[in-house]
Amino acid sequence: MKIIATDRNGKTTEIEGNDGWTVMEALRDAGLPITAECGGACACATCHVYVEEGWLEKLPKQRDEEVDMLDMAVAVQDNSRLSCQIVCSDETDGIQVTLAPE
């Protein structure tokens, strides 16, 4: 399944996500500059992405833990998510995300 990812310089690439794995893992494995300091434990907010229009509502609702953790991210917007909390699935095939500033 596909993930369309835009880096902080505006460069967009199509990367491969694995079913059941997270978008953070796909971004990291594709070599995009995402810090993901805590390794996906929803404990650091350094895998912060903006989810592009149309995709946000297709995602399962944020858990409280993610909402709380986003308080530790900078430049949070309405479409902010932690990519370690987005799981690749048929519903998210083709999801477009942009890396948030660090």
């Binding site: 909402v67 709380d68 953790m69 308080d71 917007q77």
Partner: peptide, 8 residues
């Protein structure tokens, strides 16, 4: 200021 009216 905070981006939402809720706090961790």
């Amino acid at each position: 200021v905070h981006h939402r009216d809720g706090f961790r």
